[in-house]
């Protein structure tokens, strides 16, 4: 009888794979919408190959051993990519823990004559796979955090775009909730673009702002006042009916602010101020 745990299991790799695949496929949470069974099998074969290439009886009790780093790296990659693909932590965890079931089932079969050895080896394998499980969760969370960071970056980038829609006219469409810090960024960006482009009129469109409470209104009024101090005009557009109601019910005074229901009417107002006439080309061809 072979005394080595890994040495006993290694020749049974294919059977272990079959057991592992059966465990995975039998699980109700299998995400064949996110990953095909063939891909799952290929991924499992690769991981299992790597496991038996690197694992020895010594490293079975030392999951931190440097010689195991290819295995850890591969597992890290798998669970990070699963995090990005949208797998749940439970699904990702089950992938590793179903391997434990397969290994122990095989071991039970091989060690049926020696319960004491079986118990010791079961403990070791169980502990080893548990530590792999921890690696899985750590890297899964890391993958998620990377997704969140990327999304945050993307959001702040798109959060406050200032576009020049005409010579001398800037537009800033605001989307999402305005808190104090974001309102300050909005105000600074707008004022800086006004100076940079020498634009006399800025249109602040709040169609995409879900609610206007008194704090948001205060920020809008401050932006309008600061624009005026610099010598430009700021028009607030995109005021929906329910927002107009809220503003009046809150007792917010917007009488000193030029407000328009739509961006189009704000643009028309801006054209009027700048004495710009826009005609259809047909009218010109006389």
């Amino acid at each position: 009888m072979n005394d080595s745990t890994v040495g006993t299991l290694r020749p049974k790799k294919n059977q272990i794979l079959t057991l592992w695949m059966r465990n995975q496929l039998a699980d109700g949470s299998l995400r064949d919408d996110l990953m095909s069974n063939d891909d799952l099998r290929a991924q499992s074969v690769e991981l299992l190959d790597c496991l038996f290439d690197t694992l020895t009886d010594d490293t079975l009790t030392m999951p931190d051993a440097p010689s195991l780093s290819p295995l850890i790296d591969q597992l890290t990659n798998i669970s990070m990519s699963r995090a990005r693909q949208g797998f749940t932590p439970r699904e990702t965890g089950l992938y590793v823990f179903s391997l434990k079931d397969a290994l122990l089932e095989m071991l039970r079969h091989e060690r049926k004559d020696d319960p004491n050895l079986l118990l010791t080896e079961t403990m070791r394998i169980s502990k080893f796979i548990d530590s792999l499980g921890i690696v899985t969760f750590e890297s899964f969370i890391q993958g998620r955090e990377e997704v969140i960071l990327r999304q945050t970056d993307e959001m702040t980038e798109i959060a406050t775009p200032v576009v020049q829609i005409w010579d001398g006219i800037l537009a800033m469409p605001l989307i999402g909730t305005l808190d104090s810090s974001r309102a300050l960024v909005v105000m600074e960006n707008l004022l800086q673009e006004i100076v940079r482009t020498g634009s006399g009129i800025a249109i602040l469109d709040i169609s995409g702002v879900p609610t206007v409470d008194s704090m948001v209104a205060q920020h809008l009024i401050k932006t309008v006042n600061a624009t005026r101090l610099m010598g430009a005009e700021c028009i607030i557009s995109g005021i929906r009916a329910e927002i107009a109601q809220t503003i009046v019910h809150l007792g917010i005074d917007l009488s000193h602010v030029v407000t328009k229901a739509t961006m189009a009417s704000a643009l028309k107002h801006a054209f009027g101020t700048l004495r710009i006439e826009v005609n259809k080309s047909a009218a010109r061809s006389v």
Partner: peptide, 18 residues
């Protein structure tokens, strides 16, 4: 009055000066 810097304008508004 011309050329007020953005930072100065924001500060004046926070100060309550119009």
């Amino acid at each position: 009055v011309v050329g007020m810097q953005p930072a100065v304008a924001i500060t004046l508004v926070e100060l309550g000066l119009s």
